[in-house]
Amino acid sequence: MSSVNSDSTIDTLSTVVIGTIGSDAHVTGQFILTRALEDAGFQVVRLGACVPQEEFIEAAIETGAAAILVSSLYGMAYFDCEGLREKCIEAGLKDVILYIGGQLGTNREDFRDVEKSFKELGFDRVFNSDTRPAQVIENLMKDVADDVKNA
């Protein structure tokens, strides 16, 4: 899947799957993040807009991805993501890293509440809409390295 060298940075290509979930067609974030991730040495499988849960999982299995990065900007993410973690486990992706980022609620909630509700859905990290790519990459490198250590 992925490997780390002695100082815990990625030295071979880790694959990540990225897409905008549900009925959402906002893709600018994934275009930017794809480029930043590629520059950082990741292999990125970009699935585009309106991606069903199953397609994320199939792509992750097919490519041996270390992480699934879900994007959502239209406020319906909670409905779209219910059951995703369970489906990953059923498909044998027990340890896959799950991130979500974007504009995740339809009400003006405190981001800490949003983060909590998505973590309860099984996401490892939750990002709001003004997150910069560098922050995602930094977290991802750490989480991938931890995963490999714990494997």
Partner: peptide, 12 residues
């Protein structure tokens, strides 16, 4: 003003 964070409320 809520544009970046939620579906607008009546106040917004």
């Amino acid at each position: 003003p809520d544009e970046a964070s939620s579906t607008p409320s009546r106040e917004a």
